[in-house]
Design a binder for these strands. Sequence first.
DNA 1: GACAGTACTATCCAATCGGGTAGTAACAGA
DNA 2: TCTGTTACTACCCGATTGGATAGTACTGTC
Lengths: 111, 111
Amino acid sequence: MLTGNGCPKTALSIRDALEALEGRWKLLILFALSSGPRRFKQLSAEVSGITDKVLSKELKALEMNQLINRRVFDTFPPTVEYSITEHGASLEKVLEELHYWGLAHRAKIIG
Amino acid sequence: MLTGNGCPKTALSIRDALEALEGRWKLLILFALSSGPRRFKQLSAEVSGITDKVLSKELKALEMNQLINRRVFDTFPPTVEYSITEHGASLEKVLEELHYWGLAHRAKIIG
DNA sequence: GACAGTACTATCCAATCGGGTAGTAACAGA
DNA sequence: TCTGTTACTACCCGATTGGATAGTACTGTC
Protein backbone atom coordinates (compact mmCIF):
# COMPACT_ATOMS: atom_id res chain seq x y z
CA MET A 1 0.00 0.00 0.00
CA LEU A 2 1.10 3.44 -0.79
CA THR A 3 -1.58 5.58 0.68
CA GLY A 4 -1.35 5.63 4.41
CA ASN A 5 2.19 6.88 4.52
CA GLY A 6 3.56 10.12 3.25
CA CYS A 7 6.97 8.51 3.06
CA PRO A 8 9.59 10.98 1.86
CA LYS A 9 11.32 8.28 -0.18
CA THR A 10 8.17 7.64 -2.12
CA ALA A 11 7.80 11.35 -2.63
CA LEU A 12 11.31 11.42 -4.03
CA SER A 13 10.60 8.88 -6.71
CA ILE A 14 7.42 10.68 -7.65
CA ARG A 15 9.47 13.83 -7.88
CA ASP A 16 11.93 12.05 -10.19
CA ALA A 17 9.11 10.90 -12.41
CA LEU A 18 7.53 14.34 -12.54
CA GLU A 19 10.83 15.89 -13.44
CA ALA A 20 11.24 13.63 -16.46
CA LEU A 21 7.66 14.21 -17.55
CA GLU A 22 7.17 17.87 -16.73
CA GLY A 23 5.02 20.02 -18.96
CA ARG A 24 1.78 19.35 -20.75
CA TRP A 25 3.31 17.79 -23.79
CA LYS A 26 5.62 14.93 -22.95
CA LEU A 27 3.01 12.38 -22.00
CA LEU A 28 0.91 13.27 -25.02
CA ILE A 29 3.89 12.82 -27.31
CA LEU A 30 4.70 9.50 -25.70
CA PHE A 31 1.11 8.47 -26.06
CA ALA A 32 1.17 9.27 -29.77
CA LEU A 33 4.37 7.29 -30.17
CA SER A 34 2.98 4.38 -28.19
CA SER A 35 1.12 3.24 -31.29
CA GLY A 36 4.17 3.31 -33.54
CA PRO A 37 6.99 5.47 -34.88
CA ARG A 38 6.22 8.90 -36.22
CA ARG A 39 7.96 11.59 -38.15
CA PHE A 40 8.27 15.14 -36.95
CA LYS A 41 5.44 16.55 -39.05
CA GLN A 42 3.16 13.69 -38.14
CA LEU A 43 3.70 14.35 -34.46
CA SER A 44 3.22 18.03 -35.00
CA ALA A 45 -0.19 17.30 -36.53
CA GLU A 46 -1.20 14.61 -34.08
CA VAL A 47 -0.36 16.46 -30.89
CA SER A 48 -2.71 19.30 -31.60
CA GLY A 49 -1.81 22.67 -30.24
CA ILE A 50 1.92 22.18 -30.00
CA THR A 51 4.23 24.38 -32.03
CA ASP A 52 7.25 23.13 -33.93
CA LYS A 53 9.61 24.88 -31.59
CA VAL A 54 8.15 23.36 -28.48
CA LEU A 55 7.84 19.94 -30.10
CA SER A 56 11.48 20.05 -31.06
CA LYS A 57 12.47 20.98 -27.51
CA GLU A 58 10.29 18.32 -25.94
CA LEU A 59 11.61 15.61 -28.24
CA LYS A 60 15.12 16.55 -27.27
CA ALA A 61 14.29 16.27 -23.59
CA LEU A 62 12.57 12.93 -24.09
CA GLU A 63 15.55 11.63 -25.99
CA MET A 64 17.92 12.71 -23.24
CA ASN A 65 15.87 10.74 -20.75
CA GLN A 66 15.98 7.76 -23.08
CA LEU A 67 12.23 7.66 -23.45
CA ILE A 68 12.35 7.88 -27.23
CA ASN A 69 14.74 7.05 -30.06
CA ARG A 70 15.62 9.37 -32.88
CA ARG A 71 16.65 7.93 -36.23
CA VAL A 72 17.83 10.14 -39.03
CA PHE A 73 17.59 8.84 -42.60
CA ASP A 74 20.00 10.36 -45.03
CA THR A 75 17.43 11.31 -47.64
CA PHE A 76 16.89 14.26 -49.95
CA PRO A 77 14.49 16.18 -47.80
CA PRO A 78 15.60 15.00 -44.39
CA THR A 79 13.62 12.28 -42.72
CA VAL A 80 13.64 11.81 -38.99
CA GLU A 81 11.76 9.07 -37.26
CA TYR A 82 10.90 9.01 -33.59
CA SER A 83 9.98 5.87 -31.75
CA ILE A 84 9.37 4.93 -28.17
CA THR A 85 12.02 3.04 -26.22
CA GLU A 86 11.41 0.17 -23.88
CA HIS A 87 11.87 2.54 -21.00
CA GLY A 88 9.34 4.91 -22.51
CA ALA A 89 6.93 2.08 -23.11
CA SER A 90 7.13 1.22 -19.43
CA LEU A 91 5.06 4.34 -18.85
CA GLU A 92 2.11 2.54 -20.35
CA LYS A 93 0.58 1.85 -16.97
CA VAL A 94 0.89 5.47 -15.95
CA LEU A 95 -0.74 6.53 -19.18
CA GLU A 96 -3.47 3.99 -18.68
CA GLU A 97 -4.26 5.12 -15.14
CA LEU A 98 -4.15 8.72 -16.23
CA HIS A 99 -6.57 7.90 -19.01
CA TYR A 100 -9.06 6.29 -16.66
CA TRP A 101 -8.76 9.07 -14.18
CA GLY A 102 -9.15 11.66 -16.91
CA LEU A 103 -12.40 10.01 -17.95
CA ALA A 104 -13.70 10.04 -14.40
CA HIS A 105 -12.56 13.60 -13.93
CA ARG A 106 -14.32 14.77 -17.05
CA ALA A 107 -17.50 13.03 -15.98
CA LYS A 108 -17.34 14.54 -12.51
CA ILE A 109 -16.03 18.02 -13.00
CA ILE A 110 -16.09 19.07 -16.60
CA GLY A 111 -19.45 17.49 -17.22
CA MET B 1 -5.23 -2.55 -24.15
CA LEU B 2 -4.31 1.02 -24.56
CA THR B 3 -1.04 0.85 -26.34
CA GLY B 4 -1.55 -0.15 -29.90
CA ASN B 5 -3.88 2.69 -30.72
CA GLY B 6 -3.19 6.37 -30.64
CA CYS B 7 -6.90 6.95 -30.30
CA PRO B 8 -7.67 10.68 -30.14
CA LYS B 9 -10.39 10.11 -27.56
CA THR B 10 -7.91 8.50 -25.23
CA ALA B 11 -5.58 11.41 -25.84
CA LEU B 12 -8.38 13.75 -24.85
CA SER B 13 -8.90 12.18 -21.48
CA ILE B 14 -5.18 12.18 -20.84
CA ARG B 15 -5.21 15.84 -21.76
CA ASP B 16 -8.01 16.44 -19.25
CA ALA B 17 -6.06 14.72 -16.54
CA LEU B 18 -2.88 16.62 -17.32
CA GLU B 19 -4.74 19.88 -17.24
CA ALA B 20 -6.03 19.23 -13.73
CA LEU B 21 -2.62 18.10 -12.53
CA GLU B 22 -0.31 20.47 -14.37
CA GLY B 23 2.81 21.74 -12.70
CA ARG B 24 5.36 20.06 -10.50
CA TRP B 25 3.51 20.52 -7.29
CA LYS B 26 -0.03 19.26 -7.46
CA LEU B 27 0.73 15.57 -7.34
CA LEU B 28 3.24 16.08 -4.56
CA ILE B 29 0.69 17.99 -2.51
CA LEU B 30 -1.90 15.30 -3.11
CA PHE B 31 0.62 12.69 -2.13
CA ALA B 32 1.32 14.47 1.13
CA LEU B 33 -2.39 14.73 1.83
CA SER B 34 -2.95 11.09 0.95
CA SER B 35 -1.69 10.14 4.41
CA GLY B 36 -4.02 12.49 6.24
CA PRO B 37 -5.13 16.11 6.59
CA ARG B 38 -2.52 18.82 6.91
CA ARG B 39 -2.41 22.47 7.77
CA PHE B 40 -0.90 25.07 5.53
CA LYS B 41 2.41 25.31 7.34
CA GLN B 42 2.75 21.56 7.54
CA LEU B 43 2.32 21.25 3.81
CA SER B 44 4.72 24.08 3.24
CA ALA B 45 7.34 22.16 5.23
CA GLU B 46 6.54 18.76 3.82
CA VAL B 47 6.53 19.69 0.16
CA SER B 48 10.09 20.90 0.19
CA GLY B 49 10.99 23.64 -2.20
CA ILE B 50 7.58 25.17 -2.61
CA THR B 51 6.97 28.75 -1.54
CA ASP B 52 3.92 29.92 0.39
CA LYS B 53 2.67 31.88 -2.55
CA VAL B 54 2.80 28.98 -4.95
CA LEU B 55 1.40 26.57 -2.38
CA SER B 56 -1.54 28.86 -1.82
CA LYS B 57 -2.19 29.07 -5.55
CA GLU B 58 -1.91 25.32 -6.07
CA LEU B 59 -4.25 24.57 -3.18
CA LYS B 60 -6.81 26.88 -4.70
CA ALA B 61 -6.58 25.11 -8.04
CA LEU B 62 -6.85 21.70 -6.39
CA GLU B 63 -9.89 22.83 -4.46
CA MET B 64 -11.56 24.11 -7.61
CA ASN B 65 -11.09 20.72 -9.19
CA GLN B 66 -12.56 19.10 -6.09
CA LEU B 67 -9.42 17.15 -5.37
CA ILE B 68 -9.06 18.55 -1.86
CA ASN B 69 -11.25 20.02 0.86
CA ARG B 70 -10.50 23.17 2.77
CA ARG B 71 -11.83 23.59 6.29
CA VAL B 72 -11.39 26.81 8.17
CA PHE B 73 -11.55 26.75 11.97
CA ASP B 74 -12.55 29.95 13.61
CA THR B 75 -9.63 30.12 16.02
CA PHE B 76 -7.38 32.85 17.40
CA PRO B 77 -4.57 32.49 14.93
CA PRO B 78 -6.43 31.10 11.97
CA THR B 79 -6.37 27.37 11.38
CA VAL B 80 -6.98 25.89 7.98
CA GLU B 81 -7.01 22.20 7.33
CA TYR B 82 -6.66 20.59 3.95
CA SER B 83 -7.72 17.06 3.24
CA ILE B 84 -8.03 14.91 0.19
CA THR B 85 -11.45 14.24 -1.33
CA GLU B 86 -12.67 10.93 -2.63
CA HIS B 87 -12.06 12.17 -6.12
CA GLY B 88 -8.52 13.16 -5.17
CA ALA B 89 -7.95 9.82 -3.52
CA SER B 90 -8.90 8.13 -6.77
CA LEU B 91 -5.56 9.32 -8.07
CA GLU B 92 -3.89 6.78 -5.82
CA LYS B 93 -3.29 4.41 -8.71
CA VAL B 94 -1.70 7.11 -10.79
CA LEU B 95 0.53 8.07 -7.90
CA GLU B 96 1.43 4.46 -7.37
CA GLU B 97 2.37 3.86 -10.99
CA LEU B 98 4.29 7.08 -11.06
CA HIS B 99 6.15 6.00 -7.97
CA TYR B 100 7.16 2.68 -9.48
CA TRP B 101 8.16 4.30 -12.71
CA GLY B 102 10.12 6.96 -10.86
CA LEU B 103 12.08 4.23 -9.09
CA ALA B 104 12.88 2.50 -12.36
CA HIS B 105 13.77 5.78 -13.98
CA ARG B 106 16.16 6.71 -11.22
CA ALA B 107 17.81 3.32 -11.43
CA LYS B 108 18.17 3.54 -15.18
CA ILE B 109 18.97 7.16 -15.90
CA ILE B 110 19.92 9.01 -12.80
CA GLY B 111 21.95 6.15 -11.43
C1' DG C 1 15.55 29.66 -62.12
C1' DA C 2 11.69 29.21 -58.94
C1' DC C 3 9.55 26.45 -55.90
C1' DA C 4 8.34 22.69 -52.91
C1' DG C 5 9.26 19.67 -49.22
C1' DT C 6 11.42 18.30 -44.36
C1' DA C 7 13.11 19.17 -39.93
C1' DC C 8 14.56 22.12 -37.70
C1' DT C 9 16.90 26.78 -35.62
C1' DA C 10 16.89 31.79 -34.65
C1' DT C 11 14.88 35.93 -33.39
C1' DC C 12 11.54 38.96 -31.47
C1' DC C 13 8.20 39.86 -28.26
C1' DA C 14 4.40 39.30 -24.98
C1' DA C 15 2.64 36.70 -21.16
C1' DT C 16 3.26 34.04 -17.31
C1' DC C 17 5.97 32.17 -13.40
C1' DG C 18 8.10 32.44 -9.42
C1' DG C 19 11.13 34.46 -5.72
C1' DG C 20 11.58 38.00 -2.09
C1' DT C 21 9.70 41.14 0.92
C1' DA C 22 6.12 43.19 3.47
C1' DG C 23 1.60 43.54 5.39
C1' DT C 24 -3.03 41.97 7.69
C1' DA C 25 -6.47 40.24 11.41
C1' DA C 26 -6.96 38.77 16.00
C1' DC C 27 -5.55 37.31 20.23
C1' DA C 28 -2.13 35.37 23.82
C1' DG C 29 1.75 35.84 26.58
C1' DA C 30 6.06 38.60 28.47
C1' DT D 1 3.09 47.69 24.93
C1' DC D 2 5.57 44.70 22.09
C1' DT D 3 6.10 40.45 20.00
C1' DG D 4 4.72 36.06 18.11
C1' DT D 5 1.51 33.12 15.69
C1' DT D 6 -1.22 31.47 11.22
C1' DA D 7 -2.67 31.70 6.70
C1' DC D 8 -2.57 34.03 3.69
C1' DT D 9 -2.50 38.53 -0.08
C1' DA D 10 -0.13 42.37 -2.48
C1' DC D 11 3.55 44.21 -4.85
C1' DC D 12 7.86 44.42 -7.39
C1' DC D 13 10.89 42.52 -10.54
C1' DG D 14 13.75 39.32 -13.06
C1' DA D 15 13.59 34.80 -15.40
C1' DT D 16 11.33 31.51 -18.15
C1' DT D 17 7.82 30.07 -21.48
C1' DG D 18 5.56 30.10 -25.60
C1' DG D 19 3.67 32.08 -29.94
C1' DA D 20 4.56 34.08 -34.56
C1' DT D 21 7.49 34.54 -38.20
C1' DA D 22 11.36 33.77 -41.01
C1' DG D 23 15.42 31.42 -42.40
C1' DT D 24 18.55 27.26 -43.59
C1' DA D 25 20.33 23.01 -46.06
C1' DC D 26 19.63 20.07 -49.80
C1' DT D 27 17.68 18.16 -53.84
C1' DG D 28 14.11 17.04 -57.22
C1' DT D 29 10.56 18.92 -60.18
C1' DC D 30 8.25 22.19 -63.32
